[in-house]
């Protein structure tokens, strides 16, 4: 594998977006890019990552390769990333380490790190990325982040309901309750503020607040978030990158039996 990002912060943002949700991950590299999936220890939150060749300045993968890493270690190395430096990932044919080369030609500087790869045996779940859903919402990731931060302070359960009037996020704590209603809007001046809802039926789902606080760490990937909900199934929270690919989170709901 030899894959070069023209801006090293792209890879840093991707890794930082889920490094607190899961501890380790297998990156599966092939001609069609880098894909990964990891589930958290409680088996409630699943992270999916897709980095297609379009995200790279140059991308070459001669043989399919799996790269297992501890995310805490990789995140340490990526602290060196900045917008002036490129980052090339190298993995040899017989992979036992990942080489990261940061280059800042303007400053005549380069940095090289090596990370020992780990053998991760994790089962993969069969998720259908084209999963049909009753409700799809596209909204500002900044707005979503603020709403999650504000409401999750009040309760460890977070409810989302969608009707034709809009999307309602609500919490019911022991001492306080809160509710945020967002209606579809079109902001011609700033398209990232748009909110659109497409739905075939209403939904009302609850999730554990702590996972939502993990998910919003990925908001730096995109100024938009796509939400997909169906009754009594995991929700998908997806951040798509400008150049293709992105990071998605499948979150299992809470409900009464």
């Amino acid at each position: 594998l030899e894959a070069k990002f023209d801006d090293s912060t792209i890879f840093k943002k991707i890794i930082d977006s889920f490094k607190d949700s899961v501890t380790q991950i297998n990156f599966v590299c092939s001609e069609s890019g880098i894909e990964a999936q990891a589930i958290d220890d409680s088996r409630v939150l699943l992270v999916t990552v897709s980095i297609p060749p379009s995200c790279f300045e140059s991308y070459r993968c001669d043989r399919p390769t799996t790269i297992g890493v501890y995310l805490a270690s990789l995140a340490k190395l990526l602290k060196s990333a900045n917008t002036n430096s490129s980052l090339t990932l190298y993995v040899a044919d017989k992979p036992d380490e990942l080489l990261l080369l940061f280059e800042e030609p303007k400053n005549q500087k380069s940095m090289e790190y090596k990370l020992k790869l780990v053998d991760i045996t994790a089962d993969m779940l069969e998720v259908d990325s084209d999963m049909k859903s009753d409700v799809t919402v596209e909204m500002s990731s900044v707005e979503f982040t603020k709403t999650v931060r504000d409401l999750t302070q009040l309760s460890d359960s977070f409810t989302v309901s969608v009707t034709k009037d809009g999307i309602v996020f609500s919490v019911q704590g022991d001492t306080a309750q809160g509710k945020v209603l967002l209606q579809p809007r079109e902001d011609l001046a700033d398209e990232s503020n748009n909110l659109s809802i497409s739905m075939s039926k209403t939904i009302d789902l609850s999730f554990a607040s702590k996972y939502l606080l993990d998910i919003i760490k990925a908001a730096s990937i995109s100024n938009k978030i796509f939400l997909k909900f169906s009754d009594d199934t995991p929700a998908l929270f997806e951040f798509k990158m400008e150049k293709g690919g992105g990071v998605g989170f499948y979150l299992a709901p809470k409900y009464d039996d």
Partner: peptide, 14 residues
């Protein structure tokens, strides 16, 4: 709101 579901109940293991 009751029980936390796990993803295994929804997705098959590959």
């Amino acid at each position: 709101k009751g029980n936390q579901k796990r993803l295994d109940g929804f997705f098959k293991v590959k």
